[in-house]
Structure formats: structure tokens, C-alpha cells
Design a protein around this nucleic acid. Structure first.
Lengths: 246, 246
DNA sequence: ATAATAGTGTCTGTGAGACAGTATTCT
DNA sequence: AGAATACTGTCTCACAGACACTATTAT
């Protein structure tokens, strides 16, 4: 296993580790009990073609052969959960230092017909710009799908994606989570589109701009983005110093 | 606290685990990898003595001998995570059918000096009334502690409790989570006290009542609670039919 | 009457949402 | 001049928070 990537930023809800009640621990003999497998799955979302898309992998073998699935892998014995998620991210997209948070842990017996597998699901948001580079080089059995038009999925992965989407929506207006889907500099129109795509509805331009600018989390770069035959737009940058609320 | 269920860890014919990138699944052989232990810890909170308290267990043995810890136990191989949490709850408090939600999963290697343990933490809220019954019968190495005056805890359990508390606070005003700490019938004053204890600050009586009643989630029982030498208070009941927002 | 808690209404400021016209650039 | 997008301000309504007095019961 490679514990590569000194890793940085990411996780939000990060907290430490937990334990078990002493009595149990006291008499517990590791060798006596069958242990479940523990995997880490990573829901990777990005904005592509003005759509919210998720990266899926086509399974080659039983079970759910030929079905699409959320990428994941087993946790190495001396690797943290987050490190395993980052490794997965790196393997699939080649991207590092992206937004990553733990979503939920799914562990129903029987969710995997092979053996008992408990999976800790992480959620990653990739900014579209950096991603473009590597997108073409991906293997053919890896693909991006609109979260609004998903293919039939393996395991309980439909449920997991729905959960990820609702988490994203829920956090949209009291965190700065949306900025993780944009490159460093962006126009207000682009930011509004991110919100519209995620919320899946139109927003009023004036109200949106008023509200966002009022929070002070945006910094004017003094640069204008010229494109096409019309008035150029100001480019803004996220100002982490003003990390209050949106 | 007996983690029966035969079987042994490791060995098992080449069954792949959860969902991983196809390349890996394809070549994966379970017997080759060491599996972590998986435990479930349950943060149980209740209102006692007009305080928000958490149930802790005093550890008998290494590591963290004599320190207080969040109760927990290992997950049986054919038991769901939630079932394991309910079992734990039942063992420690004898209570069933309480509010229970998954909090977070902690899995840093080395957080338990004995072996690699990944723990899925659940959060339970117990209503004070039903609990009183069994409280006295508890063993001496189990105790309730104010979340505002915690003893020194084992592992990184302090962080976990802080996390649980912030989750509780965060959900307080857009869910009906607080009702789980009250008996079926309660006065508005009692409900307000729940909010005050959790938020750790005073609330305005008139604004609180106005707001809560406006949501329509309370049903007047037409009963009055007489106690002491003063005007009796109306008893209300939670109306699940009106589960909109608080 | 007194003590003790239950119960109630108004005002003010803030923020969300509805809504339409002017500004700037390129061809 | 025309096309295309950037940019801006006002009004209304709902909700949050500040704030003080009357109602009901038991002794």
C-alpha cells in the first residue's frame, strides 16, 4: 500500500477516532471473531457540460457484472480512512488536494453478496478546470454520468448517490462548499450556474448577486473576462479570510 | 458484551470485498489482507437534573484504564451497524425504541493501541422519563455526566462528544430532534428548557412560544399540569402529522 | 393579599424574493 | 445599429428579536 501524498486540506467534519466499552475490550480476543471487510468508496462529483456529474466505474466481474459502480477499494491495515479515500481519488482521477468529506457508513449484511463489507463513503468535489486535463486519458470502463440521468447501479449505490446529492444541497447555502467545483477565478454568472445546477432550478440574478456580494466572501480580482461579443464580466476569487456564512 | 459468533478472521476463500475499482476487484483475494476490527460506539444523551448528560463507562483495563469512555462493542458478522448500536443501547440502558442516528466513523490507525479498530459512532437521545426507572439499577462503573463538565476521557472521546453536541445543536432548529428528549406530554416551558440547555443560553419566552406554536407541530392535549402554588400549564404533545419544519 | 409561574402582543429591523431597465463590448 | 451578456435598485412581506404586563392557581 502506498501512503503517498502528504495530503493537505480537505475534510470538514474531521474528528478523531473512537473506541469501545472496556468490558468488551477486556475479554475480546481478536482471533476468535470473524471480521467484516472495510472498504472506502468515493463519490466524485464535478461540473461538466453544465451538468453535475459523477464518476462511475463499470464492473468487470460478479457480482453486478457490467453494472456501473462508485469507485472504491479496501482500506489498508495501517492506512487512515481519509488516506484510503485520497488514494482512491488519486488512482481514478490523478487529482490531489480536493475537497473531501466523509459522507456516511453503509454496513448492512448482505449488501454485498460475496461477504460482509462495511463501506465508509467519502464525497469529493473536483473543480472542472483541473479535471479536464486528465479526463481524456481515462480508461474506457470509467465514465462520467449526470446525477440526473444515472444508469442502473451496482449494490446500494443509487441510495448512496441520492444521499450525496442531498448532502451537497443541504450544505449549499450555509457553507462555501460550492466553490470547490469552480476554478480559482470565476464570474458571478458561473457561480450562479453552479448553484442552479446543484439545486436544479433557476435563481434570480439580482437577488443572487446581492446576497453573495453582501457576505463579503468574494474578492474582486480587478480582471475582466472577455469572451464573445458582449460586455465582459468581472472575475472574482474566493476570499477564505471571510469564511463566515453565505 | 459477549461477542460470540464463531468463525475466524482472515482466512476465507477468495471472496472479494465491497465495491472497489474493477481492476482491484478482479484480482482481489481476501485471504491476503488483514482486516481491521469494526466496533460501534453509542453516544447516549439525556436530560437529567436540568442538564444535558451523557452516559459513560469506566474502563477496567488497559488501555486508558480507569478512564471514562463512550460505551461500544464489536459488530457481529451478520448484524447491521444499526442493530449493533441498538444492542449496545439495550445492554447499557435497557431502553428500546429511542432516537438513533449515525454520527461519524473514526478509523485512524493507532487510535487504539491494541489493534486497528474502525469505529462507527451512533448518537442516541433518551427521554428522561423512561430512563429514570432503570437509572438506579446501573452498575457502579457506569455513570451520567454533564456534557459541560466532562471527566477526562479515554481515546479521543472528548472530540467525539463535542462533535455529537454540535450535531445536536445544528439540527435543533430545522428538525424535531429535541422532542426525543421529552416524554410524550410536556409543557411549553419544558420544551423551552430543552432548547436552552442544549444551546446553553437563555431564550425569550414569548418569541419561543410564538415560533413553536406557529409551526403547528404541537397538539394541545387539553390537559393542564398542576404543580405548586401557581397557574397550571397546558400540556402539549408532538404532532408527527405536521412534520414540516420548526 | 401574596407568591409563583403561565400566558400573551407590538414594534422594529433585516433579509428573501419579485421584478425591468441600463451598460459595455464586439462586429 | 444590433446582438449578446453584465450589471444594478426598489418594494413588499415574513420572520426574528427586543420588550412588560395580565391571568390563574394555592395558601
Amino acid at each position: 500500500m502506498e501512503e503517498q501524498s502528504p495530503g493537505m486540506n480537505t475534510t470538514q467534519d474531521g474528528v478523531g477516532g473512537g473506541e469501545q466499552s472496556e468490558q468488551k475490550v477486556h475479554h475480546y480476543d481478536v482471533s476468535k471473531y470473524e471480521r467484516p471487510s472495510v472498504s472506502v468508496d468515493v463519490v466524485m462529483m464535478s461540473l461538466r457540460q453544465r451538468d453535475l456529474q459523477v464518476l462511475l466505474i463499470n464492473r468487470r466481474s460478479w457480482p453486478f457484472e457490467k453494472k456501473w459502480a462508485i469507485p472504491g477499494g479496501f482500506v489498508n491495515i495501517d492506512e487512515s480512512l481519509e488516506a484510503a479515500a485520497k488514494r482512491e481519488l488519486q488512482e481514478e482521477t490523478g487529482v490531489q488536494d480536493v475537497y473531501l468529506e466523509q459522507l456516511y457508513t453503509f454496513g448492512d449484511p448482505g449488501r454485498d453478496p460475496r461477504t460482509r463489507v462495511i463501506t465508509v463513503v467519502y464525497f469529493a468535489l473536483l473543480d472542472s478546470e483541473r479535471l479536464q486535463v486528465r479526463a481524456a486519458s481515462d480508461a474506457s470502463d470509467v465514465g462520467w454520468f449526470s446525477v440526473y440521468k444515472l444508469p442502473s447501479l451496482a449494490f446500494d449505490h443509487e441510495k448512496i448517490l441520492q444521499y450525496a446529492l442531498s448532502r451537497l444541497r443541504g450544505k449549499l447555502d450555509y457553507t462555501t462548499i460550492a466553490f470547490n467545483l469552480l476554478p480559482e477565478q470565476f464570474t458571478l454568472r458561473e457561480l450562479q450556474q453552479v448553484y442552479e445546477i446543484i439545486l436544479h432550478r433557476k435563481l434570480d440574478k439580482r437577488n443572487f448577486r446581492k446576497k453573495v456580494l453582501a457576505t463579503g466572501i468574494l474578492e474582486d480580482t480587478e480582471i475582466k473576462k472577455m469572451e464573445g461579443t458582449h460586455r465582459p464580466a468581472r472575475l472574482y476569487r474566493f476570499n477564505p479570510a471571510a469564511e463566515r456564512k453565505l
